[in-house]
Simulated assay, not measured.
Amino acid sequence: MALFWSCALLSCLVAVSLVHAEMKLDCRTDYMTLVWTDPRSQADFSLFRLGSCFPTSFTAREVAFNVEFDDCSFRKLVTGDELTYSNDLIYTSSPDSSVLPFALPVVCSYKRPKDWYPMIYDPVFSTYGVEDLMFHLELMNADFSGPAESTEFSLGSIIPIMASVEQENHQPLLVLLEECVATTTPDLLPSAEVYKIITNKGCLVDSKTSRSRFERQNVNDLMLSLQAFRFALGQEVYIHCSIMAWDPNSLDETKKACHYVADHGWELLDNPVYSGLCDCCESTCKSRKKRSLGSEKTGFVQKAVLGPLTITE
């Protein structure tokens, strides 16, 4: 089955502002090749990852990936006549390195073939994080016991969403949702109209006017019961979130899960005794703790997108 392909990173050649690096992206029918070159960098090129994939090859000056779209935790989206595969080129760095970690989007866009039809529904959208962490954002069934069977929700019903992280060698990390907004596009563009769900570093602002709430059964997952809203009624909706995995003993005003309880006020999900951390949800949440090299390594943040889903009258 032939695909007409194009590259979504400025003709597959991007001069990146990170030092003097250059990224070449070649999108093919069912695979892609990416080469990152930086002759002046002090980076360890073995520490690059493309999603969940290790480099195909690397030298002291460049790293290369030759991978299929079925690998590396690529995200697949179909909108209108466009089929898009997206991932992240991640540099994880090392503790003693002078080169800071970073992540850059990698996107291949295709014209959808006339004889191609999507699966009825694939509910899991995974995003590779850093080191040995794998983040997930999923639509669930009503009791969170399995994946959702439909992406259509009636206005006012509950949309069950679960954020989770798989971890191997880390200390136990608490999963939090920093920010979540709904849009009608799979890419969060600066000009896009958005519906705010979670803002201010973990404040479920939608809960002030709805039945939306947080729940938790395990430290490594967070359940969001989101009441279906009127925004973009009848259209395709995408929910964009920042997922955080954080040291459960280092919560503060910027690392928390707060929802609003009627006739009570803001409540901290994981320990209501310290709900004072949620007071800033009505203003601006800023950390009062001084940052140190140690505190910077207590958690990780990754972006993910869920959708499309549809809310009907």
Rank of each mutant, 00 (worst) to 15 (best):
F125N: 10
A2M: 04
S126N: 02
D38Q: 06
T92C: 03
K201D: 12
E296L: 15
V181W: 05
R40C: 01
V63L: 07
A15N: 10
R49H: 10
T209K: 04
R291C: 02
Y260G: 01
L204W: 07
P160Y: 05
W5T: 13
D44G: 02
V63W: 11
E313D: 12
A262E: 09
Q217Y: 13
E267W: 01
D221T: 08
A60C: 02
T209V: 12
E62H: 15
T59E: 13
A163R: 09
P55S: 04
E296P: 00
H170W: 15
A8C: 04
K114V: 13
S191G: 00
L100N: 02
L155I: 06
L25M: 09
K290I: 10
A142R: 14
T79Q: 15
T199F: 08
E193P: 00
D71T: 13
T183Y: 03
V301G: 00
S207W: 09
R216G: 01
W266V: 01
C27H: 07
G307C: 08
S6H: 06
Y31R: 15
K196D: 12
L224A: 02
I120S: 02
L176S: 07
S86W: 03
Q217S: 12
L133R: 12
H264Y: 11
H136C: 00
Q235A: 14
P55Y: 03
E215Q: 12
F74T: 11
L13G: 02
E68K: 14
D38V: 06
I243V: 07
D96N: 11
A2Q: 05
D270F: 08
E267A: 05
K114Q: 12
T310P: 00
N271R: 11
T79F: 07
S86A: 09
L137A: 08
V305K: 07
K201W: 15
P190N: 06
C7L: 07
T298L: 14
V107M: 03
S283M: 07
T199K: 14
E22M: 08
S212W: 08
I90A: 13
V175R: 09
H240Y: 09
P101G: 03
F300V: 12
H20S: 10
H240F: 08
K256F: 05
C203K: 02
S157W: 04
L34T: 09
V63Q: 06
S283A: 15
C12S: 11
H136L: 01
C285Q: 02
G146S: 15
S275F: 05
A163K: 12
D26E: 12
M134C: 00
T209S: 08
L13W: 04
L309F: 15
L18T: 04
